[in-house]
Computed example of a mutant assay.
Amino acid sequence: MTAAADNGYRDRLRGATGTAHVRLDARFAQGLREARQYRVYLLGMHAFVANAERALATATLGPGWHAWRDTARTPWLDEDLGALSLAPLTAGPALTVANDADAAGLLYVIEGSALGATQLVGDARALGHQAGTGATFLHRHGGLGAGKRWRAFVQCLEDADFDTAGERTMLEAAARAFACAEHEFHRADLAHAGAGG
Rank of each mutant, 00 (worst) to 15 (best):
K148G: 12
F178N: 03
A103K: 06
F28W: 14
L32V: 13
L77E: 00
L42S: 05
H141C: 10
F48T: 10
N51Q: 09
W68M: 13
A181M: 15
D25I: 14
T58C: 04
R27M: 15
R187W: 02
A126Q: 11
A165C: 10
V49H: 06
M1P: 05
A104Q: 06
A175W: 11
V109E: 00
A165E: 15
A98H: 13
L106I: 14
Y108D: 01
G62Y: 02
Y41D: 05
A114M: 00
E167K: 01
A117S: 09
E79T: 12
C156H: 00
T133W: 02
P93T: 13
A126P: 03
L43V: 09
D100Q: 06
A124S: 11
R10Q: 15
A126F: 06
L190R: 14
D102E: 07
L107T: 05
R73I: 08
A98F: 08
G112W: 10
V121C: 07
M1A: 08
R10H: 14
A98V: 08
G31R: 06
T133F: 02
T19H: 12
R187Y: 02
L89P: 04
T118N: 00
R36P: 00
A83G: 11
D78F: 01
E53G: 02
T133V: 09
G31P: 11
R168H: 13
G145D: 15
Y9M: 03
V40H: 02
H141D: 06
G112Y: 04
H66Q: 15
A117C: 01
A179I: 13
W65I: 06
T60G: 06
V40E: 10
Q119K: 08
G62C: 04
T136W: 00
L138D: 07
N51D: 15
V121Y: 01
Y38E: 03
